[in-house]
Amino acid sequence: MFTNNYTFAGHVVEINSIFSEVHQYCAEYRSQKPPVFSVTTDQNDISYERERSYKEDIAEGRPHIEYSDSYLEELAVYRKIAEKAPDWDTLLFHGSVIAVDGQGFLFTAKSGTGKSTHTRLWREVFGERAVMVNDDKPLLTVADGSVIAHGTPYNGKHSLGCNISVPLKGLCILTRGADNSIVSISKQDAYPMLIQQVYRPSDPVQMHKTLLLVDKLAEFTSLYKLKCNMEKDAAITAFNGMKG
C-alpha cells in the first residue's frame, strides 16, 4: 500500500493505493497538511474502471484499449474524489481552462470537437499572459457568488495544466464553424451541455447536490457559445467576446 497526501481544490486528500503510479501522477499536488478526506482503492475499483472504460469505448465507437491496472487505479482515485467534491461545493467538469491575466476561461464540448486545439491557439496568441489551468478535467468550486477553477493532476493526455486556482470569468460551449463568432447564451440554452459535461455521482444525494451546484455555476459565471475555426482569429474572437 502506498500512502501520501495531496491537495484537490484546496482540500487535502489522503490517497492509499495498491500501485505507486498515482503518487507520481499527483506529485505536484503533494501536501504536508493533515487530510480532510481519505481515498483507498482496491482491486474491485480497478475492475469497475475497466468495465466503465470498456463501455465508454463502445459507446463512443472507439477501438478498445486494454489499460493497465495502475492507470485504472488513477481513474478510480479521481472518481472517489469527484464523488466527494459536492460536499466542498465543488464539481468535476469536462473542459479546458486557460487563464489570461489571471482570469480563467473554460471551453467545453464533446470529446474530439477541438477544446484543446482552441486553448492552444490562446497560448499562441497571448504567449506569457496565458497559463493553462487544466486541459481536461478541472475542479470548479461554486460558492459565494463566484466560480474558482482549480488545476488538478488529471489534465488530459498532453498533461497541460498546473497547480493554480483562478476565478472563472466565462464558460463557453465550443462548436466548429467556418468563421468565428461568439454569443451570450442563457442558462436554459447551456443547461443540457452543462449536465453532459459535469461529473455525475452515483450516489443520488451527491447527484442532487451536483444539480444545485450546476444551477449556481450557470448563475455565477457568464455563458457563451463560440463557433470557431482553427485560426488564431478564433482565440481573439473568443477572448474579446468573454473578457467583459
Partner: peptide, 26 residues
Amino acid sequence: SNSFIAHSDGKDTLLVSTGTSDFSGL
C-alpha cells in the same frame, strides 16, 4: 428509478440520470 433525479431549472422539470445509469442525457 433511483438512478434518476427530477430537478427544476427554474422553468422546466428536468430528469437527469446519476452516474450509475447507462443513459447519460437529460
